[in-house]
Simulated scan of single mutants.
Amino acid sequence: MSEQIEPGEAVPMNAWQAAATDLAHCVRFYSRLPVPALPWEQDAHALPSFPRLVRMIPVAGLLLGLLPAAVFGFALLLDLGPWLAAILSVAAMVVTTGALHEDGLADTADSCGATTIERRLEIMRDSRIGSFGASALFLALALRIAALAALSSRLDGGAVIATILITASLSRTAGLMPLVFLPPARRDGMSQAVGQPARETFWFAAGIAVVLAVVLGVLADLPFAGIVLMLVLSGLSGLALTRFAKRHLGGQTGDIAGAAQQAAEIAALIGLLTVLPA
C-alpha cells in the first residue's frame, strides 16, 4: 500500500531529481540566468544548502561557460579577431554571473588596505570600490582577456572553446576551497547562512571537475601537460587564497571564494599557455 502524502508535505525525490535540483540551485546562485522551477521543486528560490549541492558545482560551472564559449566561437566565425573575441567572451561571462566573482575579488583587494580583521571585514561589506579593488578588477579582466587572445593564436577555435569550459568548471570548484577548509569569518554572513560543505563532498566535486577537464581536454586535443598544469595551478590558487584568508581574516567569506575563483581561472589559463609553443 503506497504512502499518502499530506498536503504541503515535501515529496521525496529520487537520486536524479535531487541531482537536477542541486544543479538548478547552483546555476541560480552563481548566475543571473532564468532557471525555471523544476516540476518537483517545493521552493525554487530558497537559499541553497551548500553542504548538499557542492557536488554539482563543477557541472554548473561548465554550464555557465557555455555562453562565453559560444560567444568566443561565433566572434571567430565572424572574423572579428582573437582580441575582440576574447573581450566579448569575458564580457559574456561577467553578464552571465552578474560579476559575482569579480565583486568578491575587488572587495578582497580593498580589504588589504586595513590593519585589523574587524576593519577588513567592514571594508568587504562596503558596496563602494576603492583603488585596490579597482586595480585588482582591471588586472583580472585584462589577464583573462589577454590569456584567451594568446591561446587563440596557438590553438584552434575548438580547443579554446574547450579551455573556456574547463576553466569555468575548475575555477568554481577551486573557489570552494576556502568555504570547505575554513570556518566563516562572520556569524551573519552569506557563507554562514548557506552552510559549510563537508570535505568528503568537496573531494567528490573535485573528482568530477578533474574528469570533466581531462575528457574535454583530450577531445579538444589539448596537450596533456597543459591539462595537468590547469588542474594543479587552479588547485594551488584555491589553496593559496585559503591560506591568505586564514591569516587575513581568521576565516572565510563569500568574497574570498570569489577571489579564489578569479585567481584559479587566471592561473589555469596561464598554465596552459606555458606549455604551448609560441
Rank of each mutant, 00 (worst) to 15 (best):
M1Y: 12
M13E: 10
A15T: 15
W16G: 15
Q17W: 13
C26N: 02
R28A: 00
Y30T: 12
R32K: 13
R32N: 08
R32A: 01
P34T: 04
V35N: 04
V35K: 01
A37Y: 01
W40Y: 05
A44L: 01
A46M: 03
L47R: 13
P48I: 11
R55C: 04
M56G: 01
L62V: 07
G65K: 06
G65M: 11
D79M: 11
A86T: 07
A91Q: 12
A92S: 05
A99K: 05
L100Y: 11
D110V: 00
T115K: 15
R119K: 15
R120N: 10
L121Y: 07
E122L: 12
M124H: 01
S127C: 09
A136T: 04
L137T: 13
F138D: 12
A142S: 14
L143N: 13
R144G: 13
A147H: 11
L151I: 01
S153E: 15
G157T: 14
A159T: 09
A162G: 08
T167W: 07
A174N: 12
F181A: 02
F181N: 00
L182I: 02
P183F: 13
R186V: 13
R187F: 15
D188K: 13
M190T: 14
Q192H: 15
G195Y: 03
E200N: 12
W203N: 11
A209P: 09
A209R: 04
A209F: 01
V210Q: 06
A213N: 01
G217L: 08
L222S: 04
P223C: 06
P223Q: 00
P223D: 05
F224K: 08
S234V: 00
A240F: 07
G250R: 07
T253G: 06
D255M: 11
D255P: 02
G258K: 08
I266Y: 03
A268V: 07
I270C: 07
L273C: 09
T274S: 15
P277L: 13
